[in-house]
């Protein structure tokens, strides 16, 4: 994995005074209020909190999938609150890697092709894409399964392919929503090991939403959300 994004001291993620409200008919539902958060390159943050506390909403804002009602969200130097949909799509393809709870691999594509999918949006040649895919699959230890379809893989292997897809474009930030939520303890441990390695060896900035305290302690920082407000921030080893 290359070191495409050099550390210039600026935060990778800067969330300032962010509020997010949803509207259902005439009812306004506040989900996040007064959120401030900064992550530097190489940070690894676990977002915890009960259901409905706003974890996923905050993750969506940081990943450029949603816009705040007020406040600013700046990720990798890009201010996201006023960027157009098409620019955001391009920006996400370059800067964000996604890991989903249910893996969300494309069932008609092999592991290799799934990992290659985000690379098809780049200007890389076929040979360069193959090199990237092979490197990503090697990192997650699935080089020998590259021609398997998702249905031919175990849950843990599917999630590792999902991680390979997330890192194939060498993104600055990886967002993971309950990456171990659908896995058994052994597979979950392997996935957490892998994410820790991405952070430690490849200096990837990671935000992970989790309910699992055992998963959260693997992060460098843990943030608790309650009713849309950040209530606690702890560092690994302090819990």
């Amino acid at each position: 994995m290359s070191e495409a994004h050099l550390d210039n001291g600026e935060p990778v993620v800067a969330v300032h005074d962010v509020c997010k409200e949803f509207y259902r008919d005439a009812i306004t539902i506040p989900v996040l209020s007064g959120i401030n958060l900064e992550l530097k390159r190489g940070d690894y943050l676990a977002l915890m909190g009960p259901s409905g506390s706003g974890k996923s909403t905050l993750l969506n804002l940081v990943a450029g999938l949603d816009r705040p009602t007020s406040g600013t969200v700046t990720v990798c130097g890009q201010s996201l609150e006023s960027t157009s949909e098409s620019k955001l799509a391009r920006w996400r393809s370059r800067h964000i890697g996604f890991i989903f709870q249910l893996y969300n691999l494309i069932p008609v594509l092999t592991a290799f092709e799934n990992v290659e999918l985000p690379l098809t949006l780049t200007s890389l040649s076929r040979r360069e894409r193959r090199e990237h895919v092979e490197a990503a699959l090697q990192v997650v230890g699935l080089s020998d399964r590259s021609h398997h379809y998702p249905r031919q893989l175990s849950g843990g292997q599917e999630q590792r392919v999902s991680i390979a897809r997330a890192i194939a474009t060498d993104p600055t930030l990886i967002v993971a929503d309950e990456p171990t939520g659908d896995l058994d303890a052994k597979s979950a441990g392997e996935i957490l090991d892998l994410m820790e390695r991405l952070n430690r060896e490849f200096h990837k900035t990671i935000i992970m939403v989790t309910h699992d305290p055992d998963a959260a302690v693997r992060a460098k920082q843990i943030v608790h959300l309650q009713k849309g407000v950040l209530v606690e921030k702890t560092h690994a080893g302090q819990e």
Partner: peptide, 15 residues
Amino acid sequence: TSEIAVLKAIGFSRR
């Protein structure tokens, strides 16, 4: 639906 959402999340444009 979720597959299309994934495509869009990883950067596929509307077009």
